[in-house]
Simulated assay, not measured.
Amino acid sequence: MGAALVLGFGLTACGAANEATGDGGTGSGDNGQSSSLSGTLNGGGASSQEAAQGAWRAGFQQANPEVTVNYDPIGSGGGREQFISGGFPFAGSDSYLTNDEGELDGATERCDGQAPIEVPNYVSPIAVIYNLDGVDDLQLSPDTLAGIFAGDITTWDDPAIAEDNPDADLPAEDINPVHRSDESGTTGNFTNYLSTVAGDAWTHGEVETWPIKGGEGASGTSGVVAAVTNGANSIGYADASQAGDLGKAAIGVGDGFELPTPEAAAKILEVSPESDTATDTELVYDLDYTTEEAGVYPIVLSSYLIACPSYSDKAEGDLVKGYLSYIVSEDGQQAAADNAGSAPLPASIAEKAQAIVDGITVG
């Protein structure tokens, strides 16, 4: 797990007498002008959430003018590490906690023996972004996509790409595949998709740290976007909300190809089952990457908020509960949709997430 910047948790509680509610942490519902919350809340994790976290911070701080929220986009692995070590009172992650590396046990120990809470807060397509002069509408089947990132398809005029794009004028140029160089939940979701739907072409399994040499590595979502933007004939993967004006490939689903729209991304969560490890406080899903349903974009990250189910420090707990409650609320989800291009959580899932956050106890 990569090294992470440790942020201290500074908090002052100036009469935080009322428990935070789903209206953004205010006790009065008057846009926060009489909110009793105050202090600084530091969290961090998945860089894919950076744009959405900016919208959530702005909305929550407007409702609670005595509160400052900071979010450090150090990557999912760093966020989980800092939560488990106690550096963050909450974290954002593009994959849920497991015990593959003892993280779930570590989080339980950090939460004084109680299993952590995990709720989805963000659904967004992972766009396959590209910078290819003269090609505006790139289509890629799962096997072709996997072959590119495995390093087996190395030129843009390869027959496999040409078969997916019979009307495109593909250049005879080398492909520069760009991957995340840091431990990344986005990489985990992307490689999980590749190994699930194109296991013969992608034999490296689901990993959060890029497993092969070759191509170009870049740190964070913004780093991948910058590398593809600045590199002719490049292709990469990144949260669609941060892809800017780069080309976004349509990915093969069933008999057609689907573009990475928020609406198409949200549909996969609705058809996916809860994980076998889901509990009353861990609302986690195993995405159905193999769906052939039209209108569903299959390469999706469903990000999570990770926190403790109880906080002995009332001021700390009130801030965590208030902020998380705002994020999963209808207003919070719409703020992210408007400012980050994500898809609001389906109503049934948002209701379950809200109930889990409401169950956080403080003091």
Rank of each mutant, 00 (worst) to 15 (best):
M1H: 04
L5Y: 04
L7T: 00
G8V: 03
T12L: 15
T12Y: 11
N18Q: 05
E19D: 10
G22I: 04
D23R: 13
G25H: 14
G27Y: 02
D30K: 12
N31F: 10
G32N: 03
Q33V: 09
S34A: 11
S36W: 00
T40F: 13
L41S: 11
G43Y: 02
A46E: 02
A46W: 09
G54D: 06
A55D: 09
A55N: 07
A58L: 03
G59Y: 03
F60R: 05
A63K: 14
P65V: 06
P65F: 13
G75D: 02
G77E: 01
G78W: 07
G79M: 01
E81T: 14
E81F: 14
Q82P: 08
F83Y: 01
I84Y: 04
F88C: 05
A91S: 08
S93E: 00
S95A: 14
S95V: 13
G102W: 06
E103G: 03
L104V: 04
E109M: 11
A115Q: 12
P116Y: 05
L132C: 06
L132D: 03
G134S: 06
D136T: 09
L138M: 07
L140E: 00
G151L: 10
D167E: 11
A168S: 09
P171M: 12
P171V: 02
D174S: 14
I175L: 01
T186N: 09
Y193W: 04
L194Y: 03
L194C: 11
V197P: 05
A198H: 07
G199C: 15
D200T: 08
A201Y: 11
V207Q: 14
K213F: 12
K213M: 09
K213G: 15
G215A: 08
S219N: 15
A226P: 09
V228K: 04
A232D: 14
D239P: 10
D245S: 15
L246R: 08
K248E: 04
I251R: 00
D255R: 10
D255Y: 03
F257K: 00
A264H: 07
A265S: 06
E270R: 06
P273T: 13
E274D: 01
T277P: 14
T279C: 15
V284T: 00
V284M: 02
V284P: 05
Y289S: 13
T291L: 13
E292Q: 15
G295Q: 08
V296G: 05
S302D: 08
S303R: 00
Y304E: 05
S310T: 11
S312F: 06
K321C: 13
A336M: 11
A336L: 13
A337W: 08
N339H: 07
N339G: 12
G341T: 00
S348F: 03
A350R: 10
E351K: 05
K352F: 06
G359T: 04
G363N: 13
